[in-house]
Design a binder for these strands. Sequence first.
DNA 1: GTGGTCTAGACCACG
DNA 2: GTGGTCTAGACCACA
Lengths: 141, 141, 141, 141
Amino acid sequence: MYIEINPSSGVPIYLQIINQIKYSIAAGALRPGDKIPAVRELAAQLRINPNTVAKAYRELQHEKIIVAKWGEGSFVSNHGAEDIAKKEKLRIVSEILDNVLVQAYHFNMNDTELKNLLNQRLELLKNRMQVKGKREEEGHE
Amino acid sequence: MYIEINPSSGVPIYLQIINQIKYSIAAGALRPGDKIPAVRELAAQLRINPNTVAKAYRELQHEKIIVAKWGEGSFVSNHGAEDIAKKEKLRIVSEILDNVLVQAYHFNMNDTELKNLLNQRLELLKNRMQVKGKREEEGHE
Amino acid sequence: MYIEINPSSGVPIYLQIINQIKYSIAAGALRPGDKIPAVRELAAQLRINPNTVAKAYRELQHEKIIVAKWGEGSFVSNHGAEDIAKKEKLRIVSEILDNVLVQAYHFNMNDTELKNLLNQRLELLKNRMQVKGKREEEGHE
Amino acid sequence: MYIEINPSSGVPIYLQIINQIKYSIAAGALRPGDKIPAVRELAAQLRINPNTVAKAYRELQHEKIIVAKWGEGSFVSNHGAEDIAKKEKLRIVSEILDNVLVQAYHFNMNDTELKNLLNQRLELLKNRMQVKGKREEEGHE
DNA sequence: GTGGTCTAGACCACG
DNA sequence: GTGGTCTAGACCACA
C-alpha cells in the first residue's frame, strides 16, 4: 500500500491517511479482505507518530471501511457504508459537489470545463483499477 | 443576505460564513460592488462574536473576493481570484473532485448517478441566479 | 494639482492625499508659495468627505509642509522640515529604506536590480520636475 | 530569535512581529526549515496576548514565508513568495521606494546622500548575514 | 506540547 | 457607524 504524507499542507495527517486509504480502495488497489499494514508498521514507514495512524484507523473502523481482528491486524471490510440511508448519502455527496461548483465558479471555470475535469478524474481512477487488475493476473504485486 | 450557521457541524463558523458568501456570489445573490453586512451587524444577526465574522471577512479579502473600505463597509470585489495560475486552479478543483469520487464510490454510487447529481446541483445553482435576475427585472428586492 | 485616490487600497485616504501632495512638491509640480485647493474644493473634486481632506491638511501643517493663512487658503511652505535633527532624519529614512531591502529580499531581487530601480524612480521624479519647469517657461499651466 | 516590540510606535504589534521576522530571514538569522518560537512562547516573551502573535503568524503563512505543522510548531518556509508576478513585485517595491525619495526630498537630502545611505543599510544587512555564517562555522549558536 | 477557534468586551482610526 | 487591533481567557484538535 502506497501512502504519501504532506505534513505542511494544512490537511491533518490522520485525514490524509484516511483519504488515501479510501482512494486506494476506490481504485481497487485495496480490495475487500485485504490486510492493511499494522499501525506501528505504517507509522514507521511514514515516520509519523503511531497515535496518528491509530486515529486514522479508528475513524475508518467507525465508517465500517476496515475491520480489526484481534491479534491478526486490520482488513478491508466487504460491506462498506451500506447502512447509511440513501438520502443521507445524497446529502453528503451534494455538499461536497456544491463546494466544487462554488470553487469552480470563483476560478471562472465553465460547466463544460468542469464536466471534462470530472470525466478526466474518473478515467484516472478507473485506469488505476485496470492496471491493478492486470498486474494481479500476471502474478505481480 | 441570508446566512445560516450550524455551530455543531464541526466546520468552523468562520469557514461556514466564507463558504456561504462564496456560494451567494456564485449564485448571483451577491454581485460585484454589492455591500455586504457590517461585521457587527452580521455578528448580531447570527448571534456570534464580531471577531469571528471579522476573521471570515479578512480571509475573503486575502482571496480578493471582497474589499473593505475604511469607515464605509465591505463590498464584493469585481476582479475575484483571477491571479491564481490556471494550473493551480486545476489542481485545487481536481483534489476536491477526487474526494467526491471516493465518497461516491464508498456509497456505491455509479458514474451515471454521480453525473446526474452534478447536473442537478448545477441546475439548482443556476435557477437561483435566474430567480435573482427575474426578481430584479420585476422590480422586487 | 492632480491627485488620485484609491479607496480600496488599504492605505487611508487622508494618507494618500498627504503622500501625493508631498510627491508633487518633491517633483516640483507644487512650489513654495503655491496655493493649494481649498478643503471643500478638493473634497468635491475627489468626491470624498471634507473631514478627510481637512485631516490631511492638518497633518501637513503639523509637518510644516503647508501653512494656512486665515481667510486666504493654504500655501506650500518655504522652509519645510528643516527643524528636525539630522540624526532623526537619517533614522526615519533608514527605517523606510530597511523596509525596501527586506521586501526586495523576499522578492529575490538582488542589489543591482534594487539600485537600478532606485535610479529609475529618481529619474522619473526628475523628469517630472523638468517637464514642469519647461511648461512654465513656455507660459503654460 | 530576537524580537523587540514598541507598543507606542503607532505600528500595530502584529505588524512589528511580521517585519522583524522578515528582516531576520533576510539577514540570515532565520533560515528555511528553522523553527520559530511557539505562539504562546513568543507571546510570553514579549508580554503580549497569544492571539496577537497568532495573527502575525497567520499573515506570514498567507505570504508563504512560514508553514505551520499541527502540533509541531511553525517553520521558515523554503520557497518564499515566488509566485507573485515580477510586475507586481516591481510595483510594490517602487511604491515604497517613492516614499523614500519623497521623504528624503523633504529632508533636503540629495541623491548622493540617499545612495550612500542605501549602500550603508545594505552593508549592515549583509554584515549580519556574514556574522551569522561565521558564528555557525565556528560552532557557536 | 503544538496551532486553531471562539467569546466578551475595550479602544482606536477612518470617513 | 465603519473596519482594525488588542486583551484575557476558554476549549478543541493534532502529534
